[in-house]
Amino acid sequence: MSPRSARTAAPDEKAPPVAGSAALGAARRRVSAGRMAVWVALAAGPAALVLAMLPAPRTVAAAPKKTATVVATPPVADPSGYAELLVSSWLASSTKSVSEASRRVQAMAPGTALPDTPAPATLVSAINTAPTAPGRWQVTVAATDKAGAVRYFALPLMADGDRFGVPAGPAQVAAPAPAAESAESGYPVTVPTGRSLATTVGEFLTAYLSGGQIDRYAVPGVRLSAPQAAYHKVEVEQLGADQQAAAAESVAADGTQVRVRARVRAQDAAGGAWPLDYGLALTARAGRWEISAVTASSLTPVGGTR
C-alpha cells in the first residue's frame, strides 16, 4: 500500500464545526455591540445611559368622552282652547233634543248635565287660566250672546295623559275684577301740547297712520314698520310720560331715553273716528327727540328693530 493510499485509508478526521463556529461568531458580535453601546452611553453621559436602559413607552388609549343624555320634556298643555270649545258647545246644548253640540259635550266631558234651553254664544273667549295643582287648572271663559250681554263661566280641567278631563261642569261666576293698577300709572307726567317731544310724537303718529315717511323720525340704525292704514286725520288727545324730562321745554341731553303713552283719535275716509293707544320709546340726540320703538302697549314692541 502506497503512502498516498495509506493517507486515504487513515481514520476520518472530524470536519470543522462550520455551523457552531458561525453561531459562536454571532454571539461574540452581539457582545461586542452591547459593549460598544454601553461605552457610547457612558461617553454621552449618565442621562443617556438611563434613557438607554428605560423600557419603551406604552401607548395608552384615551378614555371615551362622556356625552350628556338629552331627555325630551313634553310641552305644557294649554287648556284654554279646550275650555272655550266645551263651554260654547254646552251653551248650545239642550236636554230636550240631541244635537251635534250636545254630543260634543258628552264626548268631551261625559256625565256633564245639559241646560234645558240652549242659549248659543256668538263669541266665547278664555280670559284667565289659573293652575290649581300640578296638571289641574280653572279656566274662566267669557261668553257673549246675540244681544251683546256677557256671562262668565269657570270650568275645572285636569290633564289625563295626552287628553283633558273635566271633573265638573261649568259654573257661572262674577266678572273678573279689574287690575288694581291702571295703565296710566306708568306714565305719571303729562306732556303739554307744544313741547318738543309732543310735536315729534304728533308728527310721527300722523305719518305712521297715514302712510307717510317715518324713517326720518327714527333713531339711526332703527327700522320702523308702519301698518297698512290710511287715516285722513290723526290727533293726539292725551300724552303721558314716565319721567319729567319728556315735558321740559328744551330737549334733554343726548342719550336721554323716555317712554310715553299717546292716545290718538284717527279719522278714516268714511269719517269714522277710531281711538287708538300707542306706547313710544324716544331718545334725545342732537337737540331733537327720535323714535327708538313703537309699542301697542307699554311693554310689547311692535315696530322697531335694529
Rank of each mutant, 00 (worst) to 15 (best):
S93K: 00
V294R: 01
V31G: 10
L276P: 12
G212Y: 09
V191Y: 12
A109D: 08
A175Q: 14
S297Y: 06
P220L: 04
T295L: 14
A247Y: 06
A77F: 01
V124E: 07
E184A: 13
A109V: 00
H232L: 08
A44H: 03
A113F: 05
V173M: 02
A130D: 02
A241C: 08
S80R: 04
R216H: 15
I127S: 06
G169K: 10
R263W: 11
A101T: 10
W289V: 13
R285W: 04
A143N: 06
Y208N: 07
R259T: 08
A175V: 14
A126S: 09
G272T: 11
L155K: 07
A44S: 04
D160N: 10
Q238A: 12
P110G: 05
A119S: 14
P75C: 03
E237Y: 06
V50S: 01
T199Y: 10
Y187N: 10
T140W: 01
A226L: 06
G186V: 07
L123N: 14
A229W: 06
R103H: 00
T206Y: 08
P120Q: 01
S225Y: 12
P17K: 08
T144Y: 12
E184P: 02
A33C: 00
T140F: 05
D242H: 05
A168N: 07
E237D: 13
P192D: 13
A143Q: 04
L299E: 14
A72T: 11
F153W: 14
Q138P: 01
A23D: 07
S94F: 12
W274P: 06
S93M: 05
G45V: 08
P176E: 02
I127Q: 01
V139D: 02
E237P: 04
V251Y: 09
K14W: 07
K65A: 10
G202D: 14
P275H: 04
R151I: 00
A101Q: 07
P75G: 07
L49H: 00
R223Y: 15
A130W: 09
A92P: 01
S125I: 11
V234T: 07
K65F: 03
A147P: 09
G271C: 13
A245K: 13
A22E: 10
A37F: 00
T305S: 12
Y152L: 05
I291S: 07
R7I: 05
G279M: 15
R263F: 10
A293C: 01
T112E: 09
A130Y: 01
A119T: 03
T132G: 00
Q257D: 08
G194R: 13
R7F: 09
A179S: 03
P170E: 11
G81F: 01
R288C: 14
A56S: 11
P55A: 09
P220D: 12
P156A: 08
S88N: 09
A47C: 02
A252S: 13
L157E: 03
E181W: 08
F204A: 10
A133H: 00
A286P: 11
T199C: 06
V201I: 14
A246I: 04
T206I: 03
T199N: 15
S32I: 12
T190G: 02
A269E: 07
A9V: 15
A61G: 09
P170L: 11
A179G: 15
R163D: 04
G25D: 12
L197A: 15
P115T: 11
A174I: 04
Y231T: 13
V294W: 14
A72P: 02
G20D: 04
R29H: 01
V219P: 03
A253N: 08
A149M: 05
R195I: 15
A133Q: 02
A262M: 12
